[in-house]
């Protein structure tokens, strides 16, 4: 009998393990939720998937760890590259994985416009609340008062609420979960890869950086997960988000779920109009 292996291993390149991440880094937990979803969907291999990432710790999730085609692109540009991949070969499932700094700060414009276009991409934002790879600077998602390398006296810039922002775009699917909500997060991955398999799908995972947030607070990774279990409150309707956040909690849940045609579908009907017009 072969030695039992962790369920994620069938989707990984064995030759690059162990991971490059810090001990206890939640990137691996996000991967587990995604792979568990894929396993439950019966996805045997990832040959029809393309993973695209930018720069940052979570951008190392796909490249080269995941056994699939992957493009590790420039800082902030993953969504743009992914858009090109999808349009040139719409048959592919294109998944972007990145951090809050990558996707929202330097790449914010691309994120916004991909959501506006309802571009057929699954974008996974691992929100670790800081710039971790460059050693703990302020991110657009850093909570108020938080001390970072560039806000040594406590952050005074109000953070952006990315999921809430994206609800008001044409995105088909917007969800936020904490890394502690493993089953709900897995369920969102399943929805975004099957039920809502078109249009722009955005899953935010609140996964504080182990080194520059959790250790800094003097906590262990396990303690942080227990803390998040209490701090993350599921809302049934987006009208409850503000109320939860006023109480200092993190609102989680599936904030938006629609089945509008995605960009690819819209472009195809546009192209057929173009062909008709040229025949007249």
């Amino acid at each position: 009998m072969s030695v039992a292996k962790h369920f994620s291993r069938k989707y990984l390149r064995e030759e690059v393990l162990p991971t490059p991440f810090c001990p206890g880094c939640f990137n691996g937990v996000v991967m587990n939720a995604m792979f568990k979803a894929m396993e439950e969907l019966g996805i045997e291999d990832l040959r029809n998937f393309v993973f695209v990432s930018g720069i940052g710790c979570s951008s190392w999730i796909p490249n080269p760890l995941i056994r699939a085609d992957s493009l590790h692109t420039l800082h902030g540009r993953a969504v743009a590259v992914a858009t090109g991949v999808k349009l040139a070969n719409p048959r592919l499932n294109v998944v972007v994985i990145g951090g809050d700094g990558d996707l929202v700060a330097i790449g914010g414009n691309h994120l916004l416009h991909a959501a506006r276009r309802n571009m057929d991409l699954l974008v996974v934002m691992v929100n670790n609340m800081v710039y971790a790879m460059t050693r703990g600077q302020l991110a657009p998602t850093t909570p108020l008062g938080f001390r970072t390398a560039t806000t040594p006296y406590g952050n005074f810039e109000p953070p952006i609420n990315v999921a809430k922002l994206l609800i008001n775009t044409n995105a088909n699917y917007v969800a936020r979960w904490c890394v502690s909500n493993f089953h709900k997060l897995k369920q969102s991955f399943k929805e975004a890869l099957s039920e809502v398999s078109k249009g722009f799908r955005f899953i935010e995972v609140v996964a504080p950086c182990i080194t520059y947030v959790v250790r800094y607070e003097g906590k262990t990774p396990g303690q942080k997960i227990k803390e998040l279990r209490e701090a993350c409150v599921e809302v049934k309707s987006i009208s409850e988000i503000d109320d939860v956040e006023r109480r200092g909690k993190i609102a989680v849940g599936v904030f938006k779920k629609e089945l509008k045609p995605g960009y690819v579908e819209l472009y195809e009907s546009y192209a057929s109009r173009a062909r008709e017009a040229s025949q007249k």
């Binding site: 030695v3 039992a4 292996k5 962790h6 369920f7 994620s8 291993r9 990984l12 393990l17 162990p18 991971t19 991440f21 001990p23 206890g24 880094c25 939640f26 990137n27 691996g28 937990v29 991967m31 587990n32 939720a33 568990k36 493993f182 990774p221 997960i225």
Partner: peptide
């Protein structure tokens, strides 16, 4: 297993 970030437990 689910929370092992290093895929080290089965």
């Amino acid at each position: 297993e689910m929370f092992c970030p290093d895929f080290a437990i089965a």
